[in-house]
Design a protein around this nucleic acid. Structure first.
Length: 685
DNA sequence: GAGTTTGAAACT
DNA sequence: CAGTTTCAAACTC
């Protein structure tokens, strides 16, 4: 499908244009659900958090797509708070933002590597270099003046610490910081005029970007030549976009209010803007890790309180600080996901070749969290304001309590240590003893890492690789199912039947492959023999549920109890990362089978949603625990945020749940997107 | 929270 | 490469 020409998308594009877009029309034509008309969407969706440090990491599978794509989006979501920031300020803002960011940087603050900016050859990845110009041009199209902020920013940010001996990590971080500053300023600059011209977000462009992004995602999903998977590099992106697509509906009312044009209420508008900013943060948080959300949430209240007092500039900086802190999260290796799901923070200093853009499951909880808090945040008519807030607070507390590694004897310098294995420094929440995996021991860490890599060059590479249709995995076997994922080395389970998280395959939510040496494999995501466990396999189901219940949060794909008429995503879609599996999977035509499956045979005859939401918290048959997961074929419909871990509150989606507007929006979004059976390729022919 | 189980990582 | 040990997470109670 042709992607609308971005260059022709003006900031004045409103929802009507959005609805006129080919993508929207197509969605609309496919969906039996009537999309709620969002009158006006926010123009305040900062994408700053989507900056990816992907290119920071020297890992072989760096994907710069994410970053470049993110940078493309950023101008759509800029906070209006930025609109008042004079362009001339962009220079000082950059440094100030960085400075502020530094203040928020928690563990990073202690990182001796965080010293400044230097040129990083790693930043000059060909892909990025290729894409950036278009991105930048697009970003600043609306400016229409001769001033090219890029030049200025580049000048500013190119001031490096020349000659300073820097470690790879330092250089990585520096490069990331530099780019982030650039993008921040670009976005801010572009927002100035844009916001003047448009009260609403350019959702045409946004959707176009979705299509573009997804198209790229499609292309990236394919396993690259060295067997390393890059798909996850876009998971965060897509996750983000999935959230974006929810955004308009959620905020329709809010925007209407904001638009109602009470000029006297500049403060009010500011409040709205700030609320949107909060909302934005929340959405951004969905692409990030819970720990970071903690920071985000912690600031949220402040923003509300100061919305009339603080300059937009400050708000902007604040958000950017958060972004700054969060962003490293995109660089986690897949094998760090287990950590993440336990609440690992991205604020951990990035150590190494983190190239995977996996977004932890617990972000889903954040999605729901933000959804649920929307009413309060946006001053909706919801009466239940305190509840979401309490939930959020609880989530914050719980997230803060999330543990990290607990190493006692390895000094966190072996792959036993998940932090180390993930290329992260241990930080305070870790319960490790005699930890050497800290910035102050950087040399030790690097040396140890070097040794480990000398033994096994792929020791720090993602453990799970994904392949797409017809793509053979590393063993040359063609996976039975398209878009399937496999553990690189395979598991060696003896007693767990690959039904417990002892099994790395199961833990990663991927099926076992011929490379596995497991015995009695019953992996619900795909057995070694290539089959799926029977739907009626009670052990399997229980294991799946157990596995799902272990997650901090997840999106349940189950039969749509609220809208049983909806079609169901194919299992291939279910292989998509959680956040967008149900909503944006339709944009991944290569992952979609022509025919849709209804909820399982196992659950046939049971129209009750409980069949797909089995029992209490265990409604997650075969729901994988992370983005890499596959879902058994019978897994069907409803996307439900399900933080089942004690560390994450669950966002109920039961029909009787007193629906907040946000929850309704959440559902309607799900429904709309879920009901899309397939989608023509968004990629250019 | 303590103890057990498990399988990956490390070692020989 | 195979066998053993070490380790920390997952799991159970």
């Amino acid at each position: 499908m042709d992607t609308p020409d971005k260059t022709h998308l003006t900031p004045t594009s409103n929802l009507s244009k959005f609805e006129d877009s080919p993508v929207f029309k197509y969605i609309d034509s496919l969906s039996p659900i009537e999309l709620a008309k969002s009158k006006q969407t926010d123009n305040v969706f900062s994408s700053v958090a989507f900056l990816s440090p992907s290119s920071l990491f020297p890992s072989p599978q760096i994907s710069s797509h994410r970053e470049s794509r993110f940078s493309v989006k950023r101008h759509h979501f800029l906070s209006p708070s930025n609109s008042k920031a004079p362009q001339s300020d962009h220079e000082s803002n950059a440094s100030e933002g960085a400075s502020k960011a530094d203040e928020h940087l928690g563990c990073l603050k202690n990182d001796c590597s965080y010293k400044g900016i230097s040129s990083d050859p790693l930043n000059d990845q060909p892909v990025l270099a290729t894409e950036s110009p278009r991105t930048l041009k697009y970003d600043c199209k609306s400016l229409g003046d001769s001033f090219d902020p890029r030049d200025e920013i580049l000048k500013n940010t190119s001031v490096g610490v020349a000659g300073e001996e820097r470690s790879p990590f330092q250089r990585n971080r520096d490069g990331w910081e530099k780019r982030q500053l650039q993008e921040r300023d670009l976005g801010k600059i572009c927002s100035v005029k844009q916001i003047e011209e448009s009260a609403g977000i350019d959702w045409v462009a946004a959707l176009s970007d979705v299509a573009d992004m997804l198209t790229m995602g499609s292309s990236i999903i394919h396993e690259n030549t060295d067997g390393q998977d890059q798909r996850t590099a876009d998971s965060g992106t897509t996750s983000f976009m999935s959230t974006i697509m929810q955004f308009p509906l959620d905020n329709a009312n809010n925007l209407e209010n904001a638009e109602s044009g009470d000029p006297s209420g500049s403060c009010k508008q500011n409040e709205s803007a700030v609320s949107v900013t909060d909302r934005t943060r929340g959405i951004l948080s969905t692409c990030l890790l819970d720990k970071l959300v903690v920071s985000d949430s912690g600031l949220k209240k402040d923003d509300k309180e100061e919305n009339c007092n603080q300059s937009s500039h400050q708000v902007s900086i604040r958000r950017r600080c958060l972004v700054f802190e969060k962003s490293p999260g995109f660089g986690l290796h897949l094998n760090s996901l287990p950590n993440i799901t336990k609440g690992q923070s991205l604020s951990k200093s990035t150590l190494s070749s983190m190239d995977k853009g996996e977004v932890p499951d617990n972000k889903i909880a954040v999605i729901a969290e933000n959804s649920s808090e929307t009413p309060a945040t946006f001053g909706g008519n919801e009466s239940d304001h305190s509840s979401p807030e309490k939930k959020r607070q609880k989530f914050v507390e719980e997230s803060a309590a999330c543990k990290r590694c607990n190493c006692k004897r390895s000094k966190c310098l072996k792959l036993y240590c998940d932090c180390f294995a993930a290329g992260l420094y241990c930080i305070e929440p870790c319960a490790c003893q005699d930890c050497f995996n800290k910035p102050i021991h950087e040399n030790v860490v690097l040396e140890t890492r070097r040794q480990i890599e000398s033994r096994n060059p792929l020791a720090f590479a993602p453990k799970v690789i994904r392949s797409t249709d017809g793509v053979s995995d590393s063993l040359g076997e063609t996976n039975k199912t398209p878009a399937s994922s496999r553990h690189k080395r395979g598991c060696n389970c003896k007693r767990s039947s690959c039904l417990k998280k002892y099994c790395e395959c199961f833990q990663a939510g991927v099926g076992c492959s011929l490379s596995c040496r497991c015995e009695g494999c019953k992996n619900s995501f795909g057995r070694k023999d290539g089959g799926y466990e029977s739907e009626s396999d009670g052990d399997n189901l229980e294991a799946c549920e157990r596995n799902a219940s272990e997650k901090n949060s997840e999106i349940v794909i189950s039969k749509g109890q609220e809208h049983p008429h909806l079609s169901v995503l194919s299992p291939d879609i279910s292989r998509l990362p959680f956040a967008y599996r149900g909503k944006l999977a339709a944009f991944f035509p290569h992952s979609i089978k022509p025919s849709l499956q209804l909820c399982s045979t196992q659950e046939q005859g049971s129209s009750d949603s409980s069949s797909c939401q089995p029992r209490s918290d265990s409604n997650l048959h075969g729901i994988p625990e992370n983005e890499t997961t596959e879902i058994p074929k019978h897994k069907g419909l409803t996307l439900v945020s399900k933080p089942t871990s004690p560390n994450c509150k669950r966002v109920s989606s039961t029909p009787n749940h007193p629906c907040t507007s946000s929850s309704l929006a959440w559902r309607s979004r799900k429904l709309v997107l879920r009901s899309i059976p397939s989608f023509p390729s968004l990629a250019p022919p």
